[in-house]
Computed example of a mutant assay.
Amino acid sequence: MRIPSIESPRGLREKLMLGLIRVLSGHRAPDVVRTLRYRPEMFGKPMGALFQEVLRGPSEWSIGERELFAAWVAKKNECEF
């Protein structure tokens, strides 16, 4: 299910950022980017901090191993990442 308010960027800055992603990549911004940018104070910043801790914090796995594992899980879940 898509949240309609995520489809329409709020403000000029968001429109420019999402437009730049479309121009540079040739695709619309992925839903995860739109979700994280929608209301960053409520969801995006806390989740971004968690993602950074999980992928870059102390671990027995290297950063590359964690990134590869995340990409594999995303592929299995048929996610763009």
Rank of each mutant, 00 (worst) to 15 (best):
E78P: 00
L16P: 08
L68P: 00
F81D: 05
G64P: 02
D31M: 05
G26S: 04
G19L: 01
V73A: 05
E14A: 05
L55H: 00
P30W: 01
P46A: 08
A29G: 02
E14L: 03
P46D: 05
S59A: 12
V33F: 14
K45F: 15
R66W: 00
Q52H: 04
W61F: 11
S25L: 05
V54T: 14
E53Y: 02
F81M: 15
C79H: 11
L24N: 03
H27N: 10
H27G: 04
F69H: 12
R28W: 08
R22W: 03
S25D: 09
L50T: 08
E60N: 06
L50M: 10
P4A: 07
K76W: 08
M17R: 08
M17K: 01
S8F: 09
P4H: 04
S8N: 14
L16G: 06
L55P: 03
S62A: 08
R34W: 00
E7I: 08
G57Q: 01
E7H: 06
F43V: 12
L12V: 00
P46F: 11
I21R: 00
A49I: 14
L36P: 03
S8M: 12
S25E: 11
E53L: 06
F81V: 05
G19M: 07
L36A: 09
W72R: 13
F81P: 00
I3K: 00
G64I: 05
E78L: 14
I63K: 10
G26R: 00
G26H: 01
M47N: 06
R39F: 06
P46E: 03
E65D: 02
G48I: 10
I21E: 08
G19E: 08
R22D: 15
A74M: 14
L12R: 10
